[in-house]
Amino acid sequence: MTQRRTPDTRVPSSQLMSLRDAAAFAQVDIKTIRRWIDGGHLTAYRMGPRLLRVERNELLAVAKPVEANFPGGAA
């Protein structure tokens, strides 16, 4: 069973995006966005009974630079 984050009562500081737009922006499947929400990597904001939104800045924060320390990696 996955652990749920406690509700965040702060007001989103930047633009909210639909899950479909967030998936297109991050170039991933919408299921990946849902996994990131379920895994606690992204906070989802419920807008009505079914509609979910994510914060653009938080989506950008999920992307982290990766060092190339594998054989044949870029120098």
Rank of each mutant, 00 (worst) to 15 (best):
G73E: 09
N57A: 14
T43R: 14
Q15R: 15
G48T: 07
K31Q: 15
A24M: 08
D21W: 02
A22R: 14
I30A: 10
A63N: 03
L52I: 10
A74T: 08
E58M: 08
V11L: 12
D21P: 04
V66T: 10
E58N: 01
R53D: 00
F70N: 04
K31E: 13
R34D: 07
P7S: 04
R35P: 02
I37C: 08
G40R: 13
T43F: 10
A63V: 07
L52D: 03
F25V: 04
P7Q: 02
V54T: 06
T32Q: 09
Q27T: 15
R4Q: 13
P12E: 00
V62Q: 00
R46P: 13
L16P: 02
V66W: 13
T32R: 15
E55G: 07
R20P: 05
A75C: 02
G39Y: 02
G39Q: 14
Y45P: 05
M17C: 06
S14C: 11
H41S: 10
M47R: 09
G48Q: 03
I30N: 02
G73T: 12
V54W: 10
R10Y: 04
L51G: 00
K64P: 03
A44P: 03
G40M: 06
R56K: 14
M17F: 14
P65T: 09
I30H: 14
V62H: 01
R56T: 08
T32M: 08
P49G: 07
A74K: 11
R35K: 14
H41Q: 14
V11A: 09
L59Q: 07
G48M: 06
N57S: 08
A44Q: 07
L16G: 07
A24G: 12
R56A: 11
E67P: 12
L59C: 10
P7G: 02
N69F: 04
M1C: 06
R35E: 15
Q15W: 08
G72M: 05
A22V: 05
R4N: 11
